[in-house]
Nucleic acid binder design. Structure first.
Length: 321
RNA sequence: CUCCCUAUAGCUCAAGGGUAGAGCAAUUGGCCGUAGCCCGAUGUAUGCAGGUUCGAGUCCUGCUAGGGAGACCA
C-alpha cells in the first residue's frame, strides 16, 4: 500500500507544468514524512474550473502523503481590489462551505488570522527592502485587477504571498502558472526570509471561448463555476471552442485531462450507433490519441465532458445547500 | 493644496454648435453531426447638476470619478 518515493513523485508531477525544482522535491519526499503544501485563493466569486485544477492537484498531493493547507486570502483580495471588506467576508464563508462540500481533507487558513502579526509584517518589510518596484509589478502582470492602473496595495500583494509561505510553514507552494513570478521572487528571497520552498505550477485552462481570450466571470460562456446549473453547463460546453482533431489549446480536452480523468478510473463516451457506438478510455493519453486521429467527434466529446463535469459539480451543489 | 487631460453602446474609439456612428463583444441566420473561421441580420449610449443658444456629445460654471503634472531653468 505504501508508495515509493518515485511513485509519489510521479503522482505529484502528473499534469503539472513545472516543478521548481524536481530535485528538491525528490529530496523532500525522501527526508520528510508529511510535508506541507498549500494553495491560496482570493475569495471573490464562486469556485470555477481554474480553481478545480489546483484543487485536483492538492488531492494528488494528499495521496502522496502531504498535509494540505488551503489559504483563503481575504486580505489579498482586498489589496487586489476585488471587493469591499464586508463583501469579502461573505465570500470567505461561501468558500469555506464550498471546500467542505467538496470534501477534501484540508486545513483552512484565513489570511487575516495571521497576517497582522508583528513578525509577519516585519518579514514583509524585509522583503520590501530587497525587491524593486519593477520586479513587484512584473510579478503581478497576470494577477492584478486593472494592472495598467496598479495601486500600491497590488505591489504589497506579492510580498505578502511570499511571507504567507513562510508563516504557514510550507514546504511546497502550489499555484497556476500565473503564480510563477511571485514564487520566483519568493525563492530568491530565501536568505532574506530564512525560508525556502518548492514551487509547483499547474497549466492554465484555455478560455472556453478559445485561445487568446480570458476565462472570466464577466465574459459569459468563458468558464464554468460550481454555482452553475446543469442547463448552464450544457449551454456553456456546447458553445465552447473545440476544433476537430485539435489537441493543442483545446479547453474541452484540458478539462478531461486536468479535472475529470484524475477523478475517474475510466470514462465512457456515449455515442450513437451510427457514429460508432460507445467508447471507453482508462487514461487521457489514449483518448487524446483517438481524438487527434479524428475518430472521436467534438460533439460526442462535449456531451461526455458535460456528463462528467456534472458528476463532479452536482454533489458539491447538493452538499452546499 | 494648485494646475492640466479624460468621461459617448458591454469594451475600444468616432461625430466642423444642426438626424449620435464604427470595430470588437453579445444575440441570431447560413455553412457544418460541436464550437471556431467565413458570410448575413439584430440591439443598446453622451458621468451628475445647472447655464448660453432657435438648437449642446460639442461652448460656459459647479460637482463626481479616473489619469497626469507641480525645485531651478520659465
Amino acid at each position: 500500500m505504501a508508495m515509493s518515493v518515485e511513485e509519489r513523485f510521479e503522482l505529484i508531477k502528473r499534469n503539472t507544468e513545472e516543478i521548481v525544482t524536481e530535485e528538491e522535491l525528490r529530496n523532500l519526499l525522501k527526508t520528510k514524512k508529511n510535508p506541507r503544501v498549500y494553495c491560496g485563493y482570493e475569495p471573490s466569486g464562486p469556485l470555477h474550473l481554474g480553481h478545480f485544477v489546483t484543487i485536483t492537484k492538492l488531492m494528488d498531493l494528499q495521496k502522496a502523503g502531504f498535509q494540505i493547507v488551503i489559504l483563503l486570502a481575504d486580505i489579498h483580495a482586498l489589496l487586489n481590489r476585488k471587493g469591499q471588506e464586508e463583501q469579502i467576508k461573505k465570500e470567505v464563508e461561501n468558500w469555506k462551505k464550498t471546500i467542505k462540500a467538496i470534501g477534501i481533507k484540508t486545513e483552512i487558513a484565513i489570511g487575516s488570522d495571521f497576517e497582522f502579526s508583528k513578525e509577519y509584517q516585519l518579514d514583509v518589510m524585509r522583503l520590501a527592502q530587497d525587491s524593486t518596484i519593477n520586479r513587484g509589478l512584473r510579478s503581478m502582470q497576470e494577477i492584478a485587477r486593472d494592472v495598467e492602473n496598479a495601486t500600491i496595495s497590488q505591489l504589497w500583494y506579492p510580498l505578502m504571498q511570499v511571507v504567507d509561505i513562510k508563516h504557514l510553514k510550507l514546504d511546497v507552494a502550489l499555484g497556476g502558472l500565473e503564480q510563477r513570478k511571485i514564487h520566483m521572487i519568493g525563492r530568491e528571497m530565501k536568505k532574506t526570509l530564512n525560508h525556502g520552498f518548492i514551487a509547483l505550477h499547474t497549466p492554465l485552462i484555455t478560455s472556453l471561448k478559445g485561445p487568446g481570450q480570458k476565462m472570466s466571470k464577466s465574459i459569459p460562456g468563458s468558464g464554468i463555476s460550481v454555482t452553475d446549473s446543469l442547463d448552464e453547463i450544457k449551454k456553456t460546453i456546447k458553445g465552447a471552442y473545440c476544433p476537430e482533431k485539435e489537441i493543442k489549446e483545446n479547453p474541452i480536452l484540458q478539462i478531461l485531462r486536468l479535472i475529470i480523468f484524475p477523478r475517474f478510473e475510466k470514462i465512457e463516451i456515449k455515442r450513437q450507433e451510427k457514429f460508432g457506438g460507445n467508447l471507453n478510455f482508462s487514461n487521457y493519453e489514449s483518448l487524446e490519441k483517438t481524438y487527434a486521429s479524428g475518430k472521436l467527434h467534438p460533439l460526442d466529446l462535449k456531451n461526455c465532458v458535460t456528463d462528467y463535469l456534472w458528476k463532479v459539480i452536482e454533489p458539491i451543489r447538493k452538499n452546499w445547500k
